[in-house]
Every structure is written in structure tokens, then in C-alpha cells.
């Protein structure tokens, strides 16, 4: 396989860096709010409240898969979905405002981290329920087929999802109706705080897909170049009308289940090893080997962190939703007929 041109790798690195910077800042802003995971509640409430699931260490999958998507392609994501959403092109500032619960957020402050959606870029929603996005993705792909669109659907889920029924029902559905959907299993190897391997019978995700006659590839999800190449092949097949495909990307969750979980249940040696092969580090090394000036790489990082800091400043200054918003967008039947 030919290495991608340096420009492409730089673009992938930039996306990964924006995700990393966004989540690092959100993580810091989420500390101190509640008593959980051994942390005591502080008098100073967290600025980002509630469960915040970080994809730190998994950025290569989001960046490389979404690099192959058009703006009119659709996406469903998970509770750990900031990366997918940013990579699909959602507005970073509006996402930060959503995490802060402000009226200026992507969801007007009504969803928070677990429910971020940006329909303007085809992002049909993160999901607080494991595997729940899979049948939704199959249905959205079904709609694309009925509508005669040549857009496709990308459906992200984690390794824990393959042990829930909707995984089987959604994949079967997509194959039965030959739908344009790329399933992406972002395998971070842990289900909340329990390793997924011992909880999963048989040969795993890709084999489960193949048993349904869905072609699947397994890649090193920390190597953005490998993910880029595999996603490229699979997206092309899906877009050509070949029916669903599955990408199994093996990565590692560097943080705990939620932002205030230090992940103390894990072997420190395992985490140390994982840091050696985390995707930003690998991409940085590759860029340097390609002859990219270290200052250029640092510039990308500085830029990303500055963009996030500016977004936080906007979020801090943004208004809260007013109480009447609690009564909006529930149902409108009393307000007349919707077309």
C-alpha cells in the first residue's frame, strides 16, 4: 500500500488533534462536580456536567473514516461520539456550548454530550444506549435507498455493542435489503470497566459480520494510515451499491469510562504500553519521517488548542436555555398539523 501524500496525513492529523484538544478541555472542565469513582464533590461545580465519555486514544478511527464521507452522507454515533461528530464537520464551538448546556449548543442545551446531533452535516445523533444506533443507521440507509440517493450511511459503535441484540438485527436488516451502510466497530477493548474479550464468544466482530454475508476488514485502529486505506476501500464498495460492509478497528481507550473515572482498575503497564502506540504519537512520528518540520506539527496542535479555548470562552459567555425550552419540541399535535 502506498503511503498517503503528506498533505492528506496532515489533514488527518489536524482532525485528530482537534478531537484531542476538544476532549482534553472538556475533561478538565468536567472535574469536581460529583462524588463518584473515588472523586469527592467539590464546592465548585463542574462546568461540563454529567457523564462525559472520552474517545481519547481512538481519534484515528473517527478522522480516517469520516475523511471518506461527503457532507450529505449520514452518520450515527455512540455515547463516546465527540470525535465522530467533529470529524463529520460539526461546528466545534456549538458542540462545546452543548457540553456546557447552553442555548447556543448544537442541541440548544437539551441533549448534552451523549446526544449531540448536527443534522446540518448529516450527523443523526450520538446515543446514550449501547448498540441503539445500529438499527437506526440501517433504517436511515433504507431511506436513502428508497429515496434513490447515492449518499451512504456510516454507523459507529463500540465493541460492547456486538453483544446486544440490535447488532444482529441491524446487520441482518442491512444485508437483507442490501443497504448502503458502513458499520464501524471502534473496538477499544473495554465495556465500561470490564474487558470485552472474555465477555464475547467466538471469533469476534468481523466474523459475526461475515456470518451474515457482510464483507469485513480488521485494521489497527491506532494507525490512521491503515484506517484511511481500509475505510477508503469499504466506502467505495458501499457507494458502488455493493451493500453493507463492516470495518473492525482495534484501538485503545486511554481514559476511564467517563471523564471522572481514572480507570484505576487497569494494569498501569498496559496503559503505558498503549501510550507508546497511541494514534497521535504514531501520526506525529510518521509526519516527521516524511520530512515535515516539527514546528508545523506543533503549529497544528497550538491552533487546535487555541480554537478550543476560544470555543470555551464562547460557551462560558453563552446564555442558558430558558425554562420554556423544556416544553418545546416534545410533540406539537395541539399546535396544528405538521407537514
Amino acid at each position: 500500500m502506498n503511503a498517503p501524500p503528506t498533505e492528506r496525513l496532515l489533514a488527518l492529523f489536524r482532525t485528530m488533534m482537534r478531537i484531542r484538544a476538544f476532549e482534553d478541555a472538556a475533561e478538565a472542565a468536567s472535574q469536581g462536580g460529583v462524588q463518584a469513582f473515588g472523586q469527592s464533590a467539590s464546592a465548585q461545580p463542574a462546568r461540563v456536567r454529567g457523564p462525559l465519555h472520552l474517545s481519547t486514544g481512538q481519534e484515528a478511527v473517527a478522522a480516517a473514516v469520516c475523511m471518506h464521507l461527503r457532507r450529505d452522507d449520514l452518520l450515527t454515533s455512540t455515547h463516546r461520539g465527540h470525535g465522530h461528530t467533529l470529524a463529520k464537520g460539526a461546528d466545534l464551538t456549538a458542540m462545546m456550548c452543548e457540553l456546557y448546556g447552553r442555548a447556543t449548543g448544537t442541541n440548544k442545551g437539551k441533549g448534552g454530550s451523549m446526544h449531540i446531533a448536527d443534522f446540518g452535516v448529516g450527523m443523526l445523533g450520538a446515543n446514550g444506549v449501547v448498540a441503539a444506533g445500529i438499527p437506526i443507521a440501517a433504517g436511515a440507509a433504507h431511506a436513502l435507498k428508497i429515496q434513490g440517493s447515492n449518499a451512504i450511511m456510516a454507523c459507529f459503535f463500540g465493541d460492547g455493542a456486538v453483544n446486544r441484540g440490535p447488532f444482529l438485527e441491524g446487520l441482518n436488516w442491512a444485508r437483507v435489503y442490501q443497504l448502503p451502510v458502513l458499520f464501524v466497530c471502534e473496538d477499544n477493548r473495554i465495556s465500561a470497566t470490564t474487558p470485552t474479550g472474555p465477555m464475547t464468544a467466538g471469533a469476534g466482530t468481523a466474523e459475526r459480520a461475515r456470518s451474515l454475508d457482510i464483507a469485513a476488514e480488521t485494521v489497527d485502529g491506532n494507525d490512521v494510515v491503515s484506517v484511511d486505506a481500509a475505510a477508503g476501500r469499504l466506502v467505495e464498495q458501499v457507494r458502488a451499491g455493493g451493500g453493507p460492509r463492516l470495518l473492525h478497528a482495534i484501538t485503545y481507550r486511554l481514559k476511564g469510562h467517563v471523564s471522572i473515572d481514572p480507570g484505576a482498575y487497569r494494569d498501569p503497564a498496559e496503559v503505558a504500553r498503549a501510550l507508546e502506540s497511541e494514534p497521535l504519537r504514531l501520526a506525529r512520528e510518521r509526519l516527521l519521517a516524511d520530512g515535515v518540520d516539527g514546528a508545523v506539527i506543533e503549529g497544528i496542535e497550538r491552533e487546535a488548542r487555541a480554537e478550543v479555548a476560544a470555543a470555551q470562552a464562547v460557551a462560558e459567555a453563552s446564555p442558558w436555555p430558558t425554562e420554556d425550552e423544556a416544553f418545546r419540541d416534545v410533540t406539537t399535535v395541539a399546535e396544528g398539523v405538521w407537514q
Binding site: 449520514l74 443523526l124 438499527p135 433504517g139 436511515a140 431511506a143 428508497i146 429515496q147 441482518n172
Partner: peptide, 28 residues
């Protein structure tokens, strides 16, 4: 058969797919 769709016995799949269809512009 494209508009009156026979499905597998997959209640979660049926309802989930219908949600996805609706979000993508159909009225299932």
C-alpha cells in the same frame, strides 16, 4: 415491496429502522 416492506421478525430492528427512516425524511 419497496413501500410496503416485509421484514424479518426483528421488533427492535423494525422500530429502530423506522426511527432511522423518519430521521432521514420518510414517514414510516
Amino acid at each position: 415491496i419497496e413501500r410496503v416492506i416485509d421484514t424479518p421478525i426483528s421488533e427492535a430492528g423494525i422500530m429502530g429502522a423506522a426511527v432511522g427512516m423518519a430521521l432521514a425524511g420518510l414517514k414510516p
